[in-house]
Structures are given as C-alpha cells and as structure tokens.
C-alpha cells in the first residue's frame, strides 16, 4: 500500500526533532485524509520560511528580510553596553520572556562540538567580534548551555575577548527555582555549589 510519495514524506517528517517514524506516518495519513489541501498549505508555509527568513545582520538571530536588523536590534530603548551571547534563537525568546534583560543579544547558532564537526568557523563568532570593535559594549555575558559543549564555547569566546578588554561574564547555573535543595539532582547541586558567590 505504501507508495513512494508517502514514504518520502514520512522520511522527511521523521527527520524533525522529537518525531519518530511512527508519528511521522500518523501525521502523513492524517494530512491526506483532511478536507482542504493540508499538504499544499504546509508546503507553501515552509517554502515561505525558506524565502523570507534570514539571519539578522547585527545579532545573527533569525528574522525576515523585511526586518533586518531584527526587531530587537532595531529597538532604541535597549542597553548598547551589554551583549548576551546565546546558542540558539529560541534562547533569545527565553530571555525576553523574563522581561528582566535590557541589553542586546548575539546568537552563535550552536556550540563547539568537534565530535559533530562543529568548529569555531561554523559559529557566528566573527560577527560578534566585529560588533565589539564597532559598538560601545562594555560587558559580554556568555549564556551558552551548561554542558561540555556550552562550557567549551564560553571558554573559547572568553579567551578571544580577553585582548579586546571587554568584561566577560558567564551565566550562573544551579538549582532551578522552586526546587527544594533536598530534591535537587546532584549534578545541579554540585554546579550550584561551584558557582556560589560572596554574600555582601
């Protein structure tokens, strides 16, 4: 029964994170049995993505051709002395949701991982250095993920920034709020201890 186009669609869908072959198959059959041309609508939406999305020429997050620099970079009410460096565009959204951060962003699009063939030149590190040369930045906060790759990336960027003389900080990591210490997992607890700070 499974003809080629269906198999191809299943294979494409199952490449998506979090979607296995089973789910992909279910999605494909669901789309085919819906009224209205769901596959065509989906395809056109995806195609539009490809045609209109680009990386912001300032912070490298994803934006549209019509908004480049991106909305956040275009805003005049943000603090130009501060740049928060993150791995992914979604991380920008996460920080924006807090409503606490007033500075600018820079998106690296990944973290150093030689195991996956990701070396410094695959990341948007050079554009960051350009920004630091041109702009009025006094502090760079490295908010890469708290894992081996994120830590190595932070270390790498911090060392590149050293000769530029800009203050470099690393985001603190530890126990998530609302977790009682008793129930925190040992890794988070150990890390929280590592990143402890002076009480003044």
């Amino acid at each position: 029964m499974t003809s080629d186009p269906i198999r191809r669609a299943v294979r494409q869908l199952s490449r998506l994170p979090g979607i296995g072959e089973k789910t992909a198959t279910r999605l494909v059959y669901w789309m085919l049995t819906q009224p209205g041309d769901v596959p065509a609508q989906l395809a056109s939406a995806l195609q539009e993505l490809d045609a209109s999305i680009t990386e912001c020429k300032v912070c490298c997050t994803l934006t549209t051709h019509d908004e480049d620099p991106c909305r956040l970079c275009a805003r005049g009410d943000r603090d130009d002395t501060l740049i928060l460096v993150v791995e992914h565009p979604q991380d920008v959204l996460a920080f924006e949701r807090t409503g606490e951060y007033r500075g600018r962003y820079h998106v690296l699009h990944g973290a150093l991982s030689p195991l996956d063939g990701i070396t410094p030149d695959q990341l948007r590190i050079r554009p960051l250095l350009e920004r630091l040369r041109a702009e009025t930045v006094t502090e760079v906060v490295l908010a890469t993920d708290p894992n081996v790759e994120g830590d190595a990336t932070a270390m790498y960027v911090a060392r590149l920034l050293r000769p530029i003389g800009v203050r470099t900080t690393r985001l603190a990591h530890g126990i998530s709020v609302g977790t009682e210490i008793e129930y925190a997992d040992t890794v988070s607890l150990a890390r929280a201890f590592e990143y402890r700070r002076e009480l003044s």
Binding site: L112, P114, T119, P120, V148, D151, A152, T153, M155, Y156, R159, L160
Partner: peptide, 11 residues
C-alpha cells in the same frame, strides 16, 4: 585551531 584546543584543555 590552537585556541579551540586551549578552550577544550581548560575544560
């Protein structure tokens, strides 16, 4: 790249 190896060595 030496700088990358440096970063990894620190880790």
């Amino acid at each position: 790249e030496p700088a990358m190896l440096d970063a990894l060595d620190v880790q």
